[in-house]
């Protein structure tokens, strides 16, 4: 059941590059990453590509396949017809390093700007008690494999490079929501969600949720509730305080 597929892979560096054509064998059950590896092993040994687990667990192999942001290891060749050319290009929102490898350091920078989890003072390890229903919500966001496909697809940064400093992106809105909804976290991150992380710039297009390989409902379950909480804080701080007494103040801008 082998056939020959036509691949077009972007090759180049920050200085520029172009699509290169490859004809390559495809066997039953293979995924795009298998084919890229075959090209590497037989035709272009220096073709740069990131990958790790080959099972959709590590979030390394993100690229755009026929223009759609995807994990190459979870994109089966059977979704294409045999005579369809398969075009693989690097993530567009991040600077290219080489071929399919991009500089994703933006995301690590943003990660550092989110104030860390802070449990109540004096609660010793081993004494944490939380109900499953109360951790369900945050667990959804902790499924994130940091593939950054959502970051890549979000038009706020995809089309506007200059927004990057002021916008953390959907991955980190999910992180903020995760901490905000953690039953034992004591920091209030609502003010900075708006002021430092730019959640207000999101106009709920849901493109991020659509590409998330983990099926995290980023917009519905993280961003919208966060926006509501931010608004809540703005308009009715007393009610919020009543509900979450004992929490420390806003995470502040110093981290």
């Amino acid at each position: 059941m082998t056939y020959s597929a036509h691949f077009r892979i972007w090759r180049g560096s920050a200085a520029g590059g172009s699509l290169q054509d490859f004809d390559v064998d495809v066997s039953e059950g293979e995924v795009v990453l298998d084919i890229v590896h075959r090209i590497q092993a037989t035709q272009a040994p220096d073709l740069a590509v990131r990958w790790n687990c080959k099972a959709g667990k590590c979030g390394s192999c993100s690229a755009e396949v026929n223009g759609r942001p995807r994990l190459m290891c979870m994109t089966r060749m059977s979704v294409f017809t045999e005579d369809e050319a398969v075009t693989v290009t690097p993530l567009r929102a991040f600077p290219v390093l080489r071929d399919l490898v991009t500089d994703v350091s933006f995301n690590y920078t943003k990660a550092r700007e989110v104030p860390s989890f802070a449990p109540p003072e004096g609660l010793a390890p081993g004494e944490f008690r939380m109900q499953q229903v109360d951790v369900d919500r945050s667990q959804e966001f902790r499924k994130c494999i940091e593939c950054f496909l959502c970051q890549n697809v979000c038009h706020v940064i995809r089309d506007h490079e200059d927004n990057k400093p002021a916008f953390a992106g959907p991955r980190f809105f999910a992180r903020l929501a995760e901490l905000e909804m953690h039953p034992l976290d004591t920091v209030d991150r609502r003010k900075r969600s708006q002021e430092q992380h730019g959640i207000g710039m999101c106009n709920i297009t849901k493109c991020c949720s659509e590409v998330c390989p983990e099926g995290i409902k980023i917009t519905d379950n993280a961003i919208i509730p966060m926006k509501e909480r931010v608004a809540d804080r703005k308009y009715d701080p007393v009610r919020w305080l009543g509900a979450r007494i004992g929490r420390r103040g806003d995470g502040g801008a110093e981290v």
């Binding site: 989890f117 609660l123 390890p125 944490f128 008690r129 939380m130 499953q132 902790r142 953690h182």
Partner: peptide
């Protein structure tokens, strides 16, 4: 336990452990 204090969220027992 220390992981939990650093933010890990394990699945829970009915009594919250």
């Amino acid at each position: 336990w220390e992981l939990e204090a650093w933010g890990a969220l394990f699945d829970r027992t009915p009594d919250g452990r």
